[in-house]
């Protein structure tokens, strides 16, 4: 008989880190399954997290598939399910089903320069692909990260970012000026135009708020990137994760299955319903 795709597997929260506080808090969770169930995923894929009694939320996996011991999710507190996840402690149990979605086509990107452009929580899906590239460093060309948030307090993975500087180029930004901030001040798209990454043999991956993505894409186009060189992720309301419930439907696509990763060339062909 076919497996029941709607039944989540139980997993334990093994580690919680508070990334961002304040009114829009972000926490990073690591989870381990109870039973070994061959949960293998590609970077950029998502999983449906369950808090029993509250419901399910589709969250992108922020760890790299190269690490097999745990799954990592960075979650912005937004609604019923994510609020309840934020109340969870280490050792608490949640449900996970998946993975869902297409993931980034990293195999096709070998020997290319990768430019990651993120805003706020948008670093989560990037984090997975970025660490995959770092893990197989010899397969890729130059790696660059351009990342920003409203304030320095809103940046996720702060300590990891400092570590990252040793391994690749990192450009950070904050939206408004603040004391002791030595890097770029302004929105992420402006930082992109400021740092002028070269489109030559490059792939740009951008995730973040829709308005940021829109202007980052515009900036990349201005810098000479072709539609096929730009990748982004789309998010829509999802319930089933397997292309049946119809919620994330855009044109002939179901984002949960056919997305969430799209090249700008592909995305342009879809109706703007995201």
């Amino acid at each position: 008989m076919d497996p029941n795709t709607y039944i989540p597997k139980l997993a334990k929260i093994t580690h919680i880190k508070e990334e961002v506080g304040g009114a829009r808090p972000i926490k990073t969770f690591r989870t381990q399954f109870f039973e070994n169930n061959n949960f293998s995923f590609k970077c950029g894929q998502c999983a449906m997290l369950s808090v029993f009694g509250k419901g399910e939320s589709m969250i992108s996996i922020s760890s790299t598939p190269l690490i097999k011991d745990y799954l990592q999710f960075s979650i912005l507190k937004m609604g019923r399910v994510t609020s309840s996840l934020h109340e969870k402690q280490v050792e608490d149990i949640i449900g996970i089903r998946g993975p869902y979605g297409n993931g980034f086509p990293v195999e096709k990107w070998k020997r290319k320069n990768l430019i990651f452009i993120g805003g706020g929580i948008g670093l989560a899906p990037i984090w997975s692909v970025l660490n995959t590239a770092l893990g197989k460093r010899e397969d890729y060309g130059d790696l660059t990260l351009i990342y920003g948030a409203r304030t320095s307090k809103d940046l996720v993975f702060k300590e990891e970012l400092e570590e990252l500087r040793k391994k690749m180029t990192v450009h950070l930004s904050v939206d408004v000026e603040e004391p002791d901030w030595k890097e770029f001040v302004g929105f992420v798209p402006q930082n992109v135009l400021d740092k002028k990454p070269s489109p030559k043999n490059a792939i740009a991956v951008t995730c973040g708020p829709p308005i940021m993505i829109k202007f980052v894409i515009k900036a990349l186009e201005d810098l000479g990137f072709k539609d096929e060189q730009i990748y982004t992720t789309v998010e829509n309301k999802m319930k089933c994760g397997v292309g049946k419930c119809g919620k994330c439907n855009i044109g002939i696509h179901y984002v949960c299955q056919d997305g969430p990763v799209y090249s700008w060339a592909e995305l342009k062909k879809l109706p703007q319903e995201y």
Partner: peptide, 10 residues
């Protein structure tokens, strides 16, 4: 038509 919703009901 086949669209659906999934909810936890307590």
């Amino acid at each position: 038509c086949h669209c659906f919703d999934i909810n936890d009901e307590i």
